[in-house]
Design a protein around this nucleic acid. Structure first.
Length: 951
RNA sequence: ACGACCGUAGCUCAGUUGGUUAGAGCACUACCUUGACAUGGUAGGGGUCGGUGGUUCGAAUCCACUCGGUCGUACCA
């Protein structure tokens, strides 16, 4: 074996081997276990979130696969409507072509071409993480099967009265010309203004103060063209007499009423609010309460219309209201119009004042432009009826969240769920299966032929399919079952649905998790006709943040690419990567500076296993994690330790009889029995931790066992036997057998977390272990065997450790070279101590570099020594020529001081009758024992100090 | 403003139902190239567990208040 661990040399080739040999396919026993991957965006690139959730999912998948379950990790990607369309549009734009030049059909061909060429990026990257996904069943939300599922779902929901079309306010992106969802809107703090406008009262009315106008405050003066009322608080005495009177809307000349609504805050501004139901979500609600019209004054690009469009609150067309708008603003962009309108109001003496005002501005995350609440015809899913069973499924525990507190988040959202706008004005996506006749009547069906036959429409009726596509989340909502072949009742659907585990971030509980639950429960039934859930457990993980706790983002330039941690990256390349393609190029200098400061030498290559171990170690309670590169390095070093421990084991077992043929005739030493016992405990803890989704505790248990027990102690304890010419063949065989078999079991135990190094080592040691099988991936998962627990061996080893540590402490603090062989005395021990000495003399001499050990009778004179205590047993290192008296006294004094403090605390407790009366007897007994031990130790140490004082 | 979560060593994090001297990794100090490993070993230093008050024989752990941080919803014209 190479002298150091080199992940680059092993990881990719093992992955290729696994995939080629079909190990990722379901192939276990009767018990099915499945996870559906949250479909990554096909335009996407790997980020730390993927790294994190794949580490978790793959750990669970590999664990269950090794447990013998029929295990499916379903792979697939989603088509990411807007993102993909924009990528291809950008490409076309470089050639000077717009999608409209091409037309819909041709454009979609281009998108598919792009997908074939570039859509595999993310899937290649996921392979680098070691994820054991079933690639043979990979799906894509736009493939034929999933598209059929989408149509089927749409039609069924429509037939069940749960999908409808309506005119509503939506988040409209005036650049991309589509509705977008709330998650695609980012609210930024920006500086703006509050314009105070004077709205003249009609019919000579005056305010209580005698003014002929009301002052309304607004951040969006241009929307005043669409005002339908001014609202005041019903209890506001200042305006009580004006309620029901009218305003003459400036510039427009339309009359609008003054209404009372308790939405208005009396204290804010002037207490008068202009109401524009067609351009503001809050105003829309006010408008609904007062039966106002919706007056839309903006076109799809957010420019002012030549004439307003007026609708009744139910969305129907209204031809009663005058649609005249001032001609001067027609065609002006909203911000140009804003300037002009303010200027015109000022000229008319209607501008009261302008204040600075900080506000949240909603911007489209793709386009960066300010989102406009805009009135459009859209398709909606009626969510209330779907939410009810979905809430119940979680209440009843059919679905549970880990950690549990996320259930509250789920409930609170589901309780006031809004109808879901599912249409998008894009070309790339699932086209809505609805057709219109020339009169505008809509028919829904799986295809045009079905629509015609269902509604008896012959060829003479011209049908036109809806131009819009469905929200990408609509197809994602079907993910757990559409990927398994629904609406066909496939074997896979029967076997693997409901899935077992969903691993996802809390930020999409609403947008994805909740919708999956609703869609699945409505559409998928079991044999008994009962609603099926999509998954039993939702594991919610936190966000991966940078080392400062900042959210990682391209614009902050603090993004880490998991592949750069795996492969390493030099500083210049990293700087370049972080500073290209920025939304604001002027940030480049700052980002460069901060990158050079944080990674002066770039990033080392740590390998996938170290990265995965880091994610697992941080995966505790669903909280955000600050990514710490130091930890990756630590785990890389840990892998190196595994590598080198293996070299030691191989060095001592290759070509030897390790009982690989199960011939027996071996003898287990104390150390062998102890490490085997300890292994059972590690297996127990590790498995329990996995079952509870505490990968951090599993990681900890593994490290603790492998490094602190197996490497630090067991390997050392094996040396005195293996290197002892007098040791018997049976003893050596027993030790070799234990060395190799414990290592082998440990590899299987840890394989779900660190697949590559465990496979590499397993293959190398396999012939010596008697293990069979072609891969550790499909080897049996270790299960703790309580019959192998050996408390007696553990107690003996604890004694041995205590003695050795006592000697090492003396050496360390007294500056005795570790290699110097020293004599040792023991005194005042009991029979057990004496037995232990006799049994373990050889271990002690070898591990503590002792030249001789002498057991002193209680009454015999001991040489002046440095002392360590193991229980009552005194470990004496003679000082002659080795130890400075003053130093030893200082050391003992420190120890006495510590014990004295402890004594005081413990004695105090025991003297307190409240404690002795009320505390459980075993706790009291424990304290008593402790006090005795402290007393004994103090007596011994003080005697020693006396002795030293007399020198 | 409301709700959730968090605050433990210089840094990143554990700490199960209250019960020895509050742990790990990284960083730090000293010593050590010894026949698996310097991507290492051994020993060591470092914490009044954000603060205050309470419950309790006993609180990092439970309760109340408070300060600070993160996130979500509402932050409104």
């Amino acid at each position: 074996m190479e002298k150091t661990y080199q992940p680059q040399a092993i990881e990719q080739s093992w992955y290729n081997t696994w995939e080629e040999r079909g190990y990722f396919k379901p192939q276990g026993g009767d018990n099915a276990y499945s996870i559906m991957i949250p479909p990554p965006n096909v335009t996407g690139n790997l980020h730390m979130g993927h790294g994190f959730n794949n580490a978790v999912m793959d750990a669970m998948i590999r664990y269950h696969r090794m447990r013998g379950d029929d295990t499916l990790w379903q792979m697939g990607t989603d088509h990411a409507g807007i993102a993909t369309q924009m990528v291809v549009e950008r490409q076309l734009a470089a050639e000077g072509i717009s999608r409209h030049d091409l037309g819909r059909e041709k454009f979609l061909e281009k998108v598919w071409q792009w997908k074939e060429q570039s859509g595999g990026n993310i899937t290649r990257q996921l392979r680098r993480l070691g994820s054991s996904l079933d690639w043979s069943r990979e799906r894509f939300t736009m493939d034929d099967g999933l598209s059929d599922a989408v149509k089927e779902a749409f039609v069924r929901l429509h037939d069940d009265g749960l999908i409808y079309r309506g005119k509503r306010l939506v988040n409209w992106d005036p650049k991309l010309h589509t509705a977008i969802s709330d998650v695609e809107v980012e609210n930024h703090d920006e500086k703006g203004f509050m314009w105070h406008l004077r709205y003249p009262l009609a019919d000579g009315a005056t305010t209580a103060e005698g003014k002929t106008y009301l002052v309304v405050a607004t951040t969006r003066p241009e929307t005043m063209l669409g005002d339908t009322a001014v609202a005041v608080h019903p209890d506001d005495e200042r305006y009580a007499s004006l309620i029901g009177k009218e305003i003459e809307l400036p510039l427009v000349g339309r009359r609008i009423p003054i209404v009372a609504d308790d939405y208005v805050e009396r204290e804010f501004g002037t207490g008068c609010v202009k109401i524009t139901p067609a351009h503001d979500f809050n105003d829309y609600e006010v408008g609904k309460r007062h039966g106002m019209n919706l007056i839309n004054v903006l076109d799809k690009s957010a420019a002012i219309l030549a004439a307003a469009q007026v609708f009744n609150i139910d969305g129907s067309h209204n031809d009663q209201v005058d649609t005249t708008l001032p001609a001067a603003y027609a065609g002006m962009d909203r911000y140009v119009a804003r300037k002009q309108i303010v200027a015109d109001l000022e000229a008319a003496g209607l501008l009261d004042k302008i204040d600075d005002h900080a506000l949240k501005v909603p911007r489209g995350d793709r386009s960066g432009v300010v989102i406009e609440p805009w009135l459009t015809d859209q398709w909606y899913v009626s969510t209330k009826p779907l939410a009810e069973p979905a809430i119940k499924a979680v209440e009843d525990g059919d679905i549970s969240f880990v950690p549990k507190q996320y259930e509250n988040m789920y409930f609170s959202w589901m309780r006031d769920i809004q109808d879901w706008c599912i249409s998008r004005q894009l070309w790339w996506g699932h086209r809505i299966p609805a057709w219109y006749d020339e009169a505008g009547k809509v028919y829904v069906g799986r295809n045009e032929a079905e629509v015609r036959s269902k509604h008896q429409l012959d060829e003479s009726v011209v049908l036109q399919q809806d131009n819009d596509v469905l929200d990408t989340w609509f197809s994602s909502g079907l993910w757990t079952f559409s990927t398994l072949g629904w609406p066909e009742q496939t074997e896979f659907l029967k076997k693997f649905h409901p899935s077992d585990l969903l691993v996802t971030g809390f930020d999409i509980i609403f947008f994805w998790v909740a919708r999956m639950i609703m869609m699945t429960m409505h559409l998928v039934k079991d044999e008994n006709g009962n609603a099926q859930i999509p998954f039993k457990t939702v594991y919610v993980h936190g966000l991966v943040r940078d080392s400062q706790g900042q959210k990682m983002s391209k614009s902050k330039g603090n993004v880490l690419d998991p592949l750069d941690i795996i492969d390493g990256i030099d500083l210049e390349t990293l700087v370049q990567k972080r500073t290209t393609g920025l939304m604001r190029p002027k940030d480049a200098a700052k980002i460069e500076k901060q990158t050079r400061k944080e990674f002066p030498d770039g990033i080392e290559s740590f390998g996938t296993d170290a990265l995965r171990l880091t994610f697992c170690s941080l995966a505790s309670t669903g909280r955000d994690i600050k990514f710490d590169m130091g930890r990756v390095e630590g785990y890389r070093n840990f892998c190196n330790k595994m590598w080198n421990a293996t070299r030691y084991v191989l060095m001592n077992t290759e070509g030897e009889d390790c009982d690989q043929d199960d011939s027996g005739n071996y003898e287990l030493s104390l150390a062998d029995r102890w490490i085997i016992s300890r292994l059972q405990q590690a297996e127990q803890t590790f498995t329990e931790s996995l079952e509870n989704y505490r990968l951090d505790l599993a990681t900890q248990a593994f490290n603790e066992f492998f490094k602190n027990e197996y490497c630090d102690w067991y390997l050392e304890l094996s040396k005195p036997i293996l290197w002892d010419d007098n040791a018997s063949t049976a003893q050596k065989k027993g030790t070799r057998r234990t060395l190799i078999r414990v290592l082998e079991a440990t590899l299987r135990l840890a394989h779900p977390l660190i697949p590559f190094i465990t496979e590499e080592i397993w293959q190398r040691i396999k012939p010596l272990t008697g293990a069979t099988g072609d891969t550790i991936m499909l080897a049996t998962y270790p299960i703790a065997d309580s019959s192998k627990l050996d408390p007696a061996a553990s107690a003996d080893i604890e004694w041995l450790k205590g003695v050795i540590e006592g000697i090492r402490t003396i050496r360390g603090e007294m500056n005795i070279a570790p290699g110097k062989h020293i004599p040792l005395f023991m005194q005042h021990g009991n029979d057990n101590d004496q037995r232990l000495l006799n049994d373990n003399r050889q271990y002690l001499q070898k591990l503590a570099n002792i030249e001789s050990i002498e057991w002193l009778e209680p009454d015999s004179e001991a040489p002046t020594s440095a002392t360590a205590l193991v229980g009552k047993l005194e470990i004496l290192v003679p000082m002659a020529g080795l130890i400075d008296v003053a130093a030893e006294r200082a050391r003992l004094n420190k120890e006495v001081e510590r014990l004295a403090k402890d004594h005081e605390r413990t004695a105090g407790k025991l003297q307190n009758p409240k404690f002795t009366d009320k505390a459980p007897a075993e706790v009291v007994a424990k304290e008593q024992q402790k006090l005795e031990d402290i007393n004994a130790a103090l007596v011994t140490l003080r005697e020693q100090l006396e002795t030293l004082a007399q020198l």
